[in-house]
Design a protein around this nucleic acid. Structure first.
Lengths: 273, 273
DNA sequence: AATTTAGATGAAAAAAATTTTCATCATATG
DNA sequence: CATATGATGAAAATTTTTTTCATCTAAATT
């Protein structure tokens, strides 16, 4: 890996983790970047220095200090870290373009949902969820309708990374599975609205067993969010173009992937038994 | 939206769609960028010109031609579009930050995948796919492993918008279902790699029936892409943090949602029978 | 308290990279 | 065949980045 030209160093992360070691001016620069990372990528080192009333050399030194070859290299790294909204330059929409525009709309909707979810994620909750999952005897996923497929999907993924995980798509089987949980198990309940009646009923059963519960919903005040140990929130927008619940799947999956990747990381670090 | 400084133009997308209008040298540059977009972002305009044995002014003109202020601006745009594996030499990441950073990484990975897929979507293919689906007698989804769940997911969605759709997760049942297709049916084959052996075998069976085929893969030169009527492409990047195929699910779902939304729109416009 | 030293900073110079200008060439057009 | 148009490269001009050097500040040492 060493010296690989195409690798880009994590800029924002480095800035955050080195922040305490920075000098006064360096902190000024760090604040500037952390506050609005997307502005710096369209500015020259001079403009940045002017904005901050410091010498350009100081900005340059900052770039080197956090590990880059120079200012340019830092800008490039920032550009790949920061999410820049894609400009849409559709002048005139013709009949022919209906599919194109709809496709674009749906993709952008999903991109926004992911951005919003990421922005509103509660790291403490994520951390707690990972702790629970990591120490769980087994993980069981629950969901109804479209969410039952996400549950199935999630169970496949956790299985494939070596966890004892499962999910049933059938509601009756889910009830049976729920009643067989123990204190050492973790139940992950997925529901877009957070108020699906079948799922609420199953959650009651789960709570009687003493198993730990994690909810993934788009509504923090829903019955499900209020009755789980840890409520994770996925931000989604409704659109006239799709039935409710369609687009929340994508943020749900992203959240599940994020949990998976953390578990993978933790497992790698643990001594192999 | 006009003139918004923080907006970045889609570079790869523009290059692809203007390709035919390019001159000889411009095509040379386009090829260079499309082939390995991540190299250019660490090179100067001079190095690029040298690599291609052309004048730097020509490279500069290319940047302008596709709509950028200059070479730098194009580089920045490319950097945000291209997937650069993030180097992990963070000296000391506190234990606390692991989950946060990973979650952020996974979300941004997915956002980039969606952006890249959107940027490289071939509208003609989408249009044709929608035509096929719209006029199909029934739609059958096929996929193996993780993709089988996406197939199931997709069939649920198309069913819920009133189409005759189905999918089996079991590979043997898929084969049986495949052999029962007719000329008036549409088979949608989902495979991240495009080279899953089970799925290839099923595709052969499908092709014998004369049913129309739509492939959804991340590789345009894969056996599956080359043997379907319409190949749809989802751009995804690999990450060390997740097993291969995890993140392609999200772009696959977004594509399926996009197809769904177009069908919904068309159905709304048709006179109700 | 005075002196030294190390690091931080800015100003200016130097170098590098980008952009513009201009001349030339090829190709198409009347 | 002459002319116009657009593409290209070379070189100049400009801008941006990087380096160097001098100064300043604050901590450490005497």
């Amino acid at each position: 890996m060493k010296g690989n030209q195409t690798m880009t160093q994590n800029c924002l992360g480095t800035i955050r983790s080195s922040y305490s070691k920075f000098s006064e001016k360096e902190k000024k620069i760090a604040d500037y970047i952390l506050e609005k990372p997307e502005t710096i990528i369209h500015r020259t080192i001079n403009e940045v220095a002017d904005d901050l009333n410091i010498a350009d050399a100081t900005v340059f030194r900052f770039s080197k200090r956090i590990g880059f070859k120079g200012f340019q290299a830092m800008k490039i790294a920032l550009a790949s870290e920061v999410i820049t909204p894609v400009r849409s330059i559709q002048e005139e929409i013709t009949e022919e373009d209906i599919e194109k525009n709809l496709t674009e709309k749906i993709f952008k909707l999903n991109i926004r949902s992911l951005q919003n979810t990421l922005g509103s994620i509660d790291n403490q909750s994520i951390k707690k969820a990972i702790d629970l999952i990591q120490h769980a005897n087994r993980i069981e996923f629950y969901g109804s309708g479209l969410s039952s497929i996400i549950a199935m999907n999630a169970s496949f993924k956790f299985m494939s990374i070596g966890m004892k995980a499962s999910a049933c798509m059938d509601s009756n089987l889910q009830t049976i599975s729920a009643s067989n949980l123990t204190k050492n198990d973790v139940a992950i309940i997925i529901s877009h609205s957070g108020s699906n009646q079948d799922t609420i009923t199953i959650l009651k059963t789960i709570n009687e067993t003493g198993a730990k519960t994690i909810g993934i919903t788009s509504s923090l005040n829903s019955p499900i969010s209020l009755n789980v140990d840890i409520a994770l929130y996925t931000s989604t927008e409704e659109t006239e173009n799709l039935p409710a619940g369609f687009s929340s799947q994508i943020t749900q999956l992203a959240l599940i992937d994020a949990l998976c990747s953390s578990i993978i990381k933790i497992k790698k670090k643990l001594p192999q038994k």
